[in-house]
Design a protein around this nucleic acid. Structure first.
Length: 852
RNA sequence: GCCGAGGUGGCGGAACUGGCAGACGCGCAGGACUCAAAAUCCUGUAAUCUUUUAGGUUGUGCGGGUUCAAGUCCCGCCCUCGGCACCA
């Protein structure tokens, strides 16, 4: 048997494909287009790893399959090359990031080629290329001119290690997404992109996409839409405590709260405002415990995000001397400031309804009762009564078990009596649905009805609120796109004129971030000082750079027309290729890149710069590959499987096929060093089988059925991204035909079925079989349904649900015929003898169950 | 706490719309080839019991239920992973 020399084969065909432009997408093709995309890699010094392999192989298999199915497929590649590692390397070694980046790209490119990736290299883009980032800057100016890029001073997330500001999306559990350092809050002047203006569009757009639900839900949650109302509470002085003659005749003096539960307004017994709320300074003249309040505000400022997460114990302080008036019942209620109310959400002020909100409940039972020296019961007023006992205990199962001494089983009894005794004891909080009580003329209404009516009654305003925050878009680092703006004392902020783009990164000697919130670019005076494009006077360049997400927010657009010098991409070509049909990528980008680029795209659609409202029609997420110990691959654990080492030992085809075989594409899987042997053996067997001439001859009838069944199965599996079962179907196929005589045609079909998964081996076998052109330009084999279905099947005969016999019968037999055959079986007779069948169920093509 | 996904042999995993649980592969055991080993090939491989060329029983996280039939559907729990996390 000839040996399968993958080293020689793979190198050889990789060169041939490159020479022939096998994977170059034709812009002028008459075929239907398919645009397949993977998240372009960051070219790091370590090279590409298993994490890259997974989506890339999936995209590669899928692209090759579609190409064979007759589509014009674009499967492009590029480099997301701005970012910290290159810059940190520059700080350490003094080598310009563009030099180390170029080196890393060359290396990663060689890796991708050695993996047999059928990328269209003619469309390669690089976000750090001035010809590319010229357009990133140009697009930024579009945002700026539309009023969606703005400068603002505020508390932002700051990574003390990377010494740069971060977007909300880049903070994971209070830590920097990149380096894991605990994030601090810092007051800084920053550039923002107004992504919140697109909150509704981002939500609406999701509905039109063929994405998996879990991704949609994650984005929905991140955007976090809630419907509620803005309600104003008049401010007055506390008559019991001060001698102030202040009476609030001025309707301007109020605190406005946002609530999703205006129906509980009669239960609002105090207000809480965030420590940053304006009211603290606005009502200074009335507040009698100014020092105490100032002290509290100061302590909350020093709390890190981490502390806040760890310590959920609520703290706060009463603003003495002032009161708010509940507009529903004109009651005077106290006002507190506490950091459980966030300044960035809603109005930064809430009405507290401890009887129906867990957080307010906690606060009432701790801070409020201590500060006011009153029993918390005073503040707990139930205004919603649960409809049933079940509603009630769904929020308090443990309470019932422990406090009341009742067993869970007694619930039904309680429910029958409709006994809400415990509710009246004010022993707990009920956040659920129900009917209004203690709410005067609104008593008896449902929660939904009351929301409307009470909002109206107190002249509140309906409001939709989002959790999404504007995108902090500036970074205080060197290796990023300069923000193309000029600060002029006379004209303000002036965009760099289009014809002067790109604003290129100047060479610097020190890349070190300053740590002061200024970018290293700020130290290069010759670069910073420039002319104002408007008045010609002295201007200073914006020295912040853009985040890494900028270049990746639109790269898929550039692929359609990567060399265009006049536009970011030509209209015709955008129309030709968009939208991306299938986008492979990880779940970790759901609320980062995937959200950001949708925002850019939707904006560009509104600006009539792109032809589709959404960029990515389908998104196929993948699970991560863990080490063989089931832990995340990491150098310190020593469980890293290196794709290049595996290519050297087993070949790219074995690597690819094994990766596909590991498990479902969307599942987390562990790499098992041994497992690849099975795939490697399989490839050897294929090689021997195809090249052998001894097994060629007249096929028996069974073969056709197997061949057509496999064509159907593999096609369906690839279409549904079920690569693991596609591999197993190929193995089953070889097991079925290996020992039999087959003809040349069957062998050719087998090679074609292999082609998307193991492109080198398939190409080699194709040529060894006497073909002169590439297998990857061949048409995908078709199947005949009549041959897939056999005209007989194994009838499973059960007696009382237990399998007793299997009999091969004609496909279209009737129930009566099936029964006749079944009862003739000795094995069946043994179990039915002397008994009369009560019922007989026949499922055509499958099963006959006799119940006795 | 909330949202999402999941729990199947020694291991990775398969199973259409409720219709033979464990495909395929790894590993393991036995055998062939070999002086020997590797490689390769063949056979077996959920557990358990019995009178073992065969047959019985149990079995898809746990406890119930629906059904002729449940990994799949319903009710109640447990556990693991991922996301969010005081968003009013």
């Amino acid at each position: 048997m000839k040996k399968y020399d993958f080293v020689k084969i793979e190198k050889h065909w990789q060169k041939e494909w490159e020479k022939d432009g096998t994977y170059v997408a034709n812009d002028k093709s008459k075929k239907e287009k398919k645009y397949i995309l993977i998240e372009f890699p960051y070219p790091s010094g370590e090279g590409l790893h298993m994490g890259h392999l997974r989506p890339y192989v999936a995209g590669d298999v899928y692209s090759r399959f579609l190409r064979m199915k007759g589509y014009e497929v674009m499967y492009p590649i590029g480099w997301d090359a701005f970012g910290l590692p290159a810059e940190n390397f520059a700080i350490k070694k003094g080598i310009h990031p563009s030099i180390s980046t170029a080196k890393n790209i060359a290396n990663a490119k060689a890796q991708l080629k050695s993996w047999g990736m059928g990328f269209d290299w003619s469309r390669e883009v690089n976000t750090t290329d001035p010809n590319y980032y010229k357009w990133t800057q140009w697009l930024f100016l579009k945002f700026f001119k539309a009023g969606l890029a703005y400068e603002s001073k505020g508390l932002i997330n700051w990574c003390p290690k990377d010494k740069t500001g971060l977007a909300n999306e880049e903070v994971v559990n209070g830590c920097c997404e990149r380096c894991g350092t605990t994030v601090e809050k810092k007051e800084l002047r920053q550039w923002y992109l107004k992504i919140t203006a697109y909150a509704e569009k981002l939500l609406e757009g999701l509905k039109t996409l063929e994405w998996e639900n879990k991704i949609k839900i994650q984005q929905e949650n991140w955007i976090g839409r809630s419907e509620g109302a803005l309600i104003k509470f008049q401010i007055t002085n506390d008559k019991s405590q001060t001698n102030s003659k202040f009476t609030n005749q001025n309707s301007e003096l109020f605190i406005e709260v946002f609530t999703t539960r205006p129906d509980t307004l009669f239960g609002a017994t105090y207000l809480v405002i965030s420590p940053e709320h304006d009211a603290i300074s606005n009502f200074q003249f009335l507040i009698s415990n100014k020092e105490e309040v100032a002290k509290y505000v100061a302590t909350t400022k020093n709390k890190s995000e981490e502390e806040q997460i760890e310590n959920k114990e609520k703290t706060g302080v009463e603003l003495k001397g002032i009161k708010a008036i509940n507009p529903a019942n004109n009651e005077e209620i106290p006002i507190f400031s506490a950091d459980y109310v966030l300044s960035g959400y809603g109005t930064g002020a809430i009405m507290a309804v401890p009887a129906h909100d867990e957080r307010d409940w906690d606060f009432a039972n701790s801070v409020v009762s201590i500060e006011t020296r009153e029993s918390s019961a005073k503040y707990i007023r139930h205004v919603i009564e649960p409809k049933s006992y079940k509603d009630l205990i769904s929020y308090h199962p443990y309470f019932y078990k422990i406090e009341s001494g009742e067993k869970y089983e007694d619930v039904q009894d309680r429910e029958a009596k409709n006994d809400f005794e415990l509710l009246k004891h004010d022993k707990f909080c009920y956040p659920g649905e129900g009917m209004l009580v203690n709410s005067k003329q609104f008593n008896g209404l449902s929660v939904e009805e009351a929301k409307e009516k009470i909002t109206e009654f107190v002249k509140g305003k309906k409001q939709i609120q989002y959790r999404l925050r504007d995108w902090v878009f500036s970074r205080q680092r060197y290796w990023g796109e300069p923000i193309p703006l000029i600060h002029c004392k006379k004209c303000g902020i002036v965009p760099v004129p289009e014809e002067e783009l790109p604003v290129t990164l100047p060479d610097v000697k020190k890349y070190e971030p300053t740590g002061t919130g200024e970018s290293p670019l700020a130290t290069i005076e010759s670069w910073v000082n420039t002319k104002c494009p408007k008045c010609g006077g002295q201007g200073k360049r914006e020295t912040n750079t853009m985040p890494q997400w900028a270049g990746s927010s639109w790269y898929y657009l550039r692929y359609t027309d990567p060399k265009n010098e006049k536009e970011f991409a030509g209209k015709e070509l955008l129309k030709q290729w968009l939208p991306v049909d299938v986008y492979f990528g990880g779940m970790e980008h759901t609320t980062l890149h995937l959200l950001y680029s949708r925002f850019w795209h939707e904006f560009l659609y509104d600006e009539k710069l792109v032809p589709t409202p959404e960029p990515y029609k389908r998104r196929i997420p993948h699970g991560i590959i863990l080490g063989s110990d089931g832990e995340k691959m990491s150098k310190s654990r020593g469980n890293v499987a290196n794709p290049d080492a595996i290519v050297n030992e087993f070949g790219a085809d074995a690597l690819r096929m094994y990766e596909l075989f590991l498990g479902p594409h969307e599942a987390t899987v562990s790499w098992n060093e041994r497992g690849i042997l099975g795939v490697s053996r399989f490839l050897d067997r294929i090689y021997g089988f195809i090249l052998s001439t001894e097994n060629e001859g007249t096929e028996d009838n069974e073969i056709k059925h197997v061949v057509h069944g496999t064509i159907k199965k593999i096609g369906e599996d690839i279409e549904e991204f079920k690569f693991n079962t596609a591999v197993s179907a190929l193995m089953i196929f070889l097991n079925e035909i290996e020992a039999k005589k087959v003809n040349k045609e069957t062998k050719n079909i087998f090679i074609k079925l292999l082609a998307p998964l193991v492109p080198h081996l398939a190409e080699e076998l194709w040529h060894e079989s006497g073909n002169k052109t590439s297998i990857h330009a061949e048409a995908w084999p078709t199947f005949d349904m009549a041959l897939v279905e056999k005209n007989s099947f194994m009838l499973v005969v059960q007696v009382n649900g237990k399998v007793r016999d299997q009999i091969e019968v004609q496909k279209n037999i009737t129930k009566e015929e099936a029964e006749k055959i079944a009862f003739a079986s000795e094995k069946v007779k043994q179990h039915t003898a002397g008994k009369t069948p009560k019922n007989i169920i026949y499922v055509p093509g499958r099963i006959l169950n006799i119940v006795v």
